[in-house]
Design a protein around this nucleic acid. Structure first.
Lengths: 205, 205
DNA sequence: CTCGCTATTGAACAATGTTCAGCTGAGAGG
DNA sequence: CCTCTCAGCTGAACATTGTTCAATAGCGAG
């Protein structure tokens, strides 16, 4: 049995991506394998290499779907006031981590082999995420230059990311339970409170 | 050749741990393998399983060494004023990430298989790290209750962690270079500025 | 109906972690 | 000095991983 032509190349890609997401969501990132994906869609492992460059390529495409969903959820908050928008966006970030921890892990804990470069079409999505935050920061404090907003947005969102990472890994509950939502609120509230007030030289000491 | 008795069990453990650290420091976490460790110390792979439960056990022990070094570096800052101490500690956290990125990755990006529990002797080290931060936060604001300090310390340090993670992965430079040191300073400065002032209910909205 | 082209197979490869029966040599007892 | 025992260590095996590619099977053009 060869040359079945049951699916177009694009359909095969979509099927494979869906299979990855299904397998990871159920069994976790480390239970993912090329053979499982192939079996899941009724093909052999070899086929996948005519449609994706390698497993990492396939994973990246699966992650793009997850990221697009996250971006859409975060975008919905842009109508609110800047501070509320940022709080809501952080909430969505954490919500995804809690609703779909395995898919979240696949996105944010997957490493490229030997630090190989992430393709541009993928980088563009992570960039969008930061831009979304940056826009709200800019709205919050009009008199700041672009560089300051750039720095503050990356500072704040890297922090949100850090809290979410440790939340997913349960590394925080080792000393009594902590409410990650409260942590995010505390972070954003306090950081913005001081930053928006005076940030001309909020750096050394 | 069997039964050589050249090294004691404890020596073998130390040798293996050193080998792991050498291999990872040079070649990165994903190039680590049981066979490489064994070859590095002149033994066969099987031997390692008489001295460690599995590869993850060995990795955890190698990570403990790295963590102890980090803790020592951070402890040296406790003599400073609280705000300066926290800034310096964060600096050490980032410094390690930059000096030994591979070892840092092995510590902070290694996942236990299927989210298996991290042993207590290891958890104790990550806890110490938080306690170090907590102590400084407590010094900073005496009138706060333990729960508030607990929350704020974990919030702040998870954020420091998040910035360091993205720094190691170079996920921040995708939109022009950002100075991670400046980010850490901004984070700590602004968060502490607002938190130390009034933190009775720095939560909702 | 036939033929060619290509999508798909399936078997092979190297490398991974892990297990364990068995060997071999160090050290106790003679 | 010899011997015997016991355990530290070996080495080969297993299952599983990603990846490659010659071979093939069947669709669609002629």
């Amino acid at each position: 049995m060869a040359r079945r032509n049951e699916h177009s190349k694009a359909q095969l890609r979509t099927l494979a991506i869906a299979a990855v997401r299904a397998i990871v969501a159920e069994q976790g990132p480390d239970k993912l394998s090329v053979r499982k994906v192939a079996e899941h869609i009724g093909y052999t492992p070899g086929m996948l290499y005519h449609v994706f460059a390698c497993l990492d390529d396939l994973i990246l495409h699966a992650n793009a779907v997850t990221l697009d969903g996250l971006l859409q959820r975060m975008q919905a908050a842009t109508a609110l006031s800047p501070a509320e928008a940022l709080q809501t966006m952080a909430g969505q970030y954490l919500a995804l981590a809690r609703e779909e921890p395995h898919l979240w892990q696949l996105v944010f804990m997957h490493r490229m082999p030997q630090a190989a470069a992430v393709p541009a079409w993928y980088q563009q999505r992570t960039l969008q995420l930061f831009v979304l935050v940056e826009d709200q920061m800019a709205r919050l404090s009009a008199q700041q230059d672009a560089a300051a907003v750039h720095l503050a947005a990356r500072t704040l969102w890297s922090s949100v990311h850090g809290i979410s990472v440790l939340a997913v890994e349960n590394k925080l509950s080792i000393a009594g339970d902590v409410d990650e939502t409260a942590m995010l609120q505390s972070l954003i509230h306090h950081y913005l409170a001081s930053w928006a007030r005076n940030s001309v030289n909020g750096d050394d000491a």
